[in-house]
Nucleic acid binder design. Structure first.
Lengths: 206, 206
DNA sequence: ACCTGAACACCGTTCAAGT
DNA sequence: ACCTGAACACCGTTCAAGT
């Protein structure tokens, strides 16, 4: 009658699998739940009450693992940052193309998580997980012949252009009458102009 | 005993001067108060309760003049937009310089009202008051030899670069160790690179 | 010692009761 | 008819009472 013949043994088992819907509360579990809510329902729905409910616990319990909401948002961006795309340049690819490919990949990635840009912009420091993307982006600029200082300036300029495009994406069209370009296309145009301008500081220019 | 000798005449006066601290509630009065709070104490302090208190009325009364908070923010940006700077190019000034001067002025202006970038980015449509700046910006790009379509793309690219710079200005430094450049200087570098790249689509290039 | 229900101090918005 | 105090449905955060 009982479908669980192994029930008696459960007590001796080292509890390796607690009921799936209630994994022990932890920063990781909280972050995962928050990420799921943000990805599927938007940052507006991401409240501590909601996270707690999803985890089957009380709101106050969250504060045993995070100091405040801002810390949860920081965890969220770090969680995302480890997946930031890195596009390795192909053999003989012109520097400008390699740079464009990297930043277009970043655009696509961040556009797919439309909460990210806002959270990153509001948070103070770019998550430490951004390190590898930063290093890669700087390397591409150095490879284009930029000085260390100009590479850093260029990186930040590209980042700000990206951020501006992501943050200004109104849900419902662009207001102006004429059929607007797809957002990705518009960013690519701007990106290539900026890379072009930055490149003139370096050794490539054609 | 009564300090108000003119009291009897008050009824016959056309109420041309109500007590100065209580001008009749209106959209303009509400906007002015909101603007003052945002400018002096930041957008975080701008609550409807606060506006109402400052005007000596109840919060509910505001809803006789505005539909919701978002409308107040829209009024706020329109109020600011009429003061957007327009920098006329001087005689014989190279197109790139004229464009740079215009956008640097915009940067300085918006940086001085640090709530503006966030509110504008969140609001759906750039306030109608932006029309003249838009027209001026487009004219400068057309004068540089850009097609109508490229002028529009260029304008939007410049706007997004500006927005990204304004929105990513963390209050406390840039996180990375080395002494960062002043924000305005950093924007100017990026701006000139972008203008440079955009210019290569036009007729000037040197 | 660890957890958490209930309360607190805020929001924006609505509504019924005042004039 | 117009105005608005009080309430409502939310927040993030804290605290005292539970285990």
């Amino acid at each position: 009658m009982t479908p669980h013949k192994t029930k008696a043994r459960a007590a001796t088992r080292p509890a390796l699998a607690a009921p799936a819907q209630r994994p022990a509360l932890s920063r990781a579990a909280i972050t995962a739940t928050a990420r799921h809510i943000a990805d599927t329902e938007g940052i507006g729905e991401l409240t501590l009450r909601r996270v707690a409910a999803e985890l089957g616990t009380g709101q106050a319990s969250l504060y045993r693992h995070i100091a405040h909401r801002a810390e949860l948002l920081a965890l969220l961006t770090e969680d995302l940052a480890v997946s930031f795309p890195i596009v390795e340049p192909t053999q003989g690819e012109p520097p400008a193309e390699a740079i464009a490919a990297q930043w277009l990949a970043m655009y696509d990635f961040l556009a797919a998580h439309h909460w990210a840009a806002k959270v990153i912009a509001e948070g103070n420091h770019l998550a430490t997980g951004t390190r590898s993307v930063l290093e890669h982006g700087l390397a591409l600029l150095r490879a284009a012949g930029l000085s260390e200082a100009d590479a850093l300036r260029g990186y930040r300029a590209l980042w700000h252009l990206l951020l501006g495009h992501l943050l200004n994406e109104h849900p419902f069209g662009h207001g102006s009458g004429a059929a607007p370009e797809p957002a990705g296309t518009e960013f690519e145009w701007a990106l290539r102009r900026l890379i072009d301008g930055i490149g003139r500081m370096g050794t490539w220019h054609r």
